[in-house]
């Protein structure tokens, strides 16, 4: 019953989301194709809702994949510093005053993407020096890396002009405001590829969720599987963060929420986690647009505001 209400609520918001925002749109106005309302609706709102959905799906699914691969509930691309790497990359692009690189893709995005990928490979390289059992050390490495990046970002802030700092600040807070259909399409493809990989490797993931040793003894090439999944996940996260900036908490809490709603084995939660993550982020984005401030509230603030207390509730209730 609770499941039904939660899905009903989330899907309802998803369907209504495009009508909500600084300009309220009534369905009647949409019949007039040339009206400003219909332009806003079709070129801004719907792409944004889809973008939010794919973003949420990528964040939630990558959280689930990371948590499973490392058998640790705190392992997400966000906590491992991969998002921070993207922010630092974007910060460097903004500081250097780069605007667009090839193919009309913003330099900020390209640098953000490189920052995320660089971090993944750095973590993979460093993790060779850890013993297989020391998962906590990897988490500590991620946190250390995160802090290091933040201090580099602070230097950029310190040296930056007011305009650069404003751009950087907004990027750091995460936002889903995009224009047109290019980004939703790119992100949709990334989400699809990530989902496909996770789904094809669902049985390997299931075995890895027991233990690395057990997976290997049952015939899973754990190194190859882990590496492939990490790279695909990081590519998707890199693409996402380079466009939207970092959006925290979704990767951490959505897999937990779905696990509470559906206490099933991991292989059966892949699709549910993806869809739930998508709907959850669209809900957060709808709230950010519904609350009228001078401009809209950055989505990262909303996810943290909802996610933080909810996460604490989950932890306390579980004990």
């Amino acid at each position: 019953m609770i499941r039904f209400f939660i899905w009903f609520f989330l899907i309802g918001i998803f369907l209504l989301s495009a009508f909500i925002g600084a300009v309220d749109i009534s369905p009647k106005e949409l019949l007039d194709a040339d009206s400003l309302s219909s332009t806003i609706f079709y070129d801004l709102r719907i792409p944004r809702v889809l973008f939010g959905f794919f973003a949420g799906a990528i964040l939630a699914l990558s959280g689930l994949v990371f948590q499973t691969l490392f058998r640790n509930a705190l392992m997400t691309p966000y906590t491992l510093g991969i998002s921070s790497g993207a922010v630092l990359g974007a910060g460097i692009a903004i500081k250097l005053g780069l605007s667009t690189l090839a193919f009309g893709i913003a330099a900020v995005s390209v640098f953000g993407f490189v920052g995320a990928l660089f971090t993944v490979f750095l973590l993979l390289y460093l993790s060779q020096f850890l013993r297989q059992t020391q998962q906590t050390s990897l988490l500590l490495l991620g946190i250390a890396l995160s802090l290091f990046y933040t201090s580099l970002l602070m230097i950029i802030f310190y040296l930056g002009s007011a305009i650069q700092n404003d751009m950087l600040m907004r990027f750091t807070m995460g936002s889903l405001s995009i224009i047109g259909w290019k980004y939703p399409l790119i992100l949709g493809m990334a989400a699809f590829i990530l989902f496909l990989f996770s789904y094809l490797y669902r049985f390997e993931l299931q075995l890895l969720s027991i233990s690395q040793e057990q997976a290997q003894l049952k015939g899973v090439d754990t190194k190859k599987t882990t590496l492939r999944l990490l790279i695909v996940t990081s590519l998707a996260i890199g693409i996402l963060v380079s466009i939207s900036g970092p959006i925290g908490f979704v990767g951490l809490i959505v897999p937990h929420m779905v696990e509470k709603l559906y206490p099933q084995i991991i292989s059966k939660r892949i699709l549910k986690t993806s869809i739930f993550g998508g709907l959850f982020l669209v809900m957060c984005d709808t709230i950010s647009r519904a609350i009228q401030t001078q401009s809209e509230l950055p989505i990262g603030i909303i996810t943290a505001l909802i996610g933080g207390p909810f996460f604490i509730y989950l932890i306390v209730k579980a004990k």
Binding site: T68, R71, Q206, S209, S211, Q214, K218, V220, P263, I266
Partner: peptide
């Protein structure tokens, strides 16, 4: 075991992975 939701039946089935 990390996955807290795996049943005996599902766990034994993993032996058939190969």
């Amino acid at each position: 075991i990390y996955d807290a939701h795996i049943s005996v039946q599902d766990f034994i089935l993993l032996g058939r992975f190969a």
